[in-house]
Simulated scan of single mutants.
Amino acid sequence: MTLKDVMTIKEAADLWGRPVATIKAACMGQKGYPPRFREDECRQSGSIWLITRAGMERLYGKQPEKK
């Protein structure tokens, strides 16, 4: 894994066209449900959430191509 394979939730949301809140909820879990990302795919560093490209692709598929 390289540094290019790790991004902030905001970057991931922009690249995949998903709301930031949706991705953050998938990292944290919500309403009694466990997180959808595995521990090695998403974590919080201070106030910033980091996520791997592999985790995004596992849950949301390949990154959509820019139009």
Rank of each mutant, 00 (worst) to 15 (best):
E57Y: 12
T22Y: 01
L15E: 09
D14S: 12
R43S: 09
Y60G: 14
R53E: 01
K24W: 02
K67L: 11
L3D: 13
P64L: 03
G29C: 02
E41A: 02
R38G: 01
I48M: 10
M28I: 05
K62R: 13
R58F: 06
V6N: 00
R38C: 01
A26T: 04
V6H: 00
S47H: 08
K10D: 15
V6R: 03
S47F: 01
L3R: 13
P64E: 04
M56T: 03
K31V: 06
I48A: 10
L50R: 11
G55A: 11
E57G: 07
S45R: 12
E11G: 02
R58S: 12
A54F: 11
K4Y: 05
M28L: 15
E41F: 05
P64K: 07
S47V: 02
W49Y: 12
K4C: 03
P34Y: 04
G29L: 02
I51Q: 07
A54T: 11
R18I: 11
G46H: 02
R18Q: 10
K10W: 00
E41S: 03
I23R: 01
Q44E: 09
A12C: 05
G61D: 11
R43Y: 12
S47M: 03
K4M: 08
K4V: 08
F37I: 00
K62Q: 13
T8M: 02
S47I: 05
E57F: 09
T8Q: 05
Q63D: 00
W16E: 09
I48V: 15
V6F: 01
R53T: 14
I51C: 11
A25N: 15
W49I: 07
R38S: 11
P19D: 10
D14G: 10
R53G: 00
A54S: 14
T8E: 08
F37Q: 04
G55F: 03
W16C: 12
Q30M: 09
R18K: 15
P64I: 05
C42W: 05
M1R: 06
K31L: 07
P64D: 04
M1Q: 08
Q30K: 12
K62L: 12
G55L: 08
K4R: 07
E57T: 10
A26V: 04
S45N: 04
R43K: 14
R43H: 14
P64H: 09
E11C: 09
W49F: 12
D40L: 07
A13H: 13
G61C: 13
A54R: 12
R38K: 14
K4I: 01
D40G: 02
I9C: 11
A25R: 13
M7R: 09
M56Q: 03
Q44T: 07
A25Y: 02
M28D: 10
A54M: 11
M1A: 12
K66T: 09
F37H: 09
P35S: 06
Y33Q: 15
K10G: 06
Q30H: 12
T2F: 08
P34K: 13
G55N: 06
Y33D: 14
M7Q: 09
I48H: 13
P34R: 15
M7T: 06
L59F: 10
Q44K: 15
R58M: 08
P64M: 03
E39G: 00
E39L: 06
R18F: 10
D40E: 14
R53P: 00
Q63L: 12
Q63M: 15
M7P: 03
V6C: 05
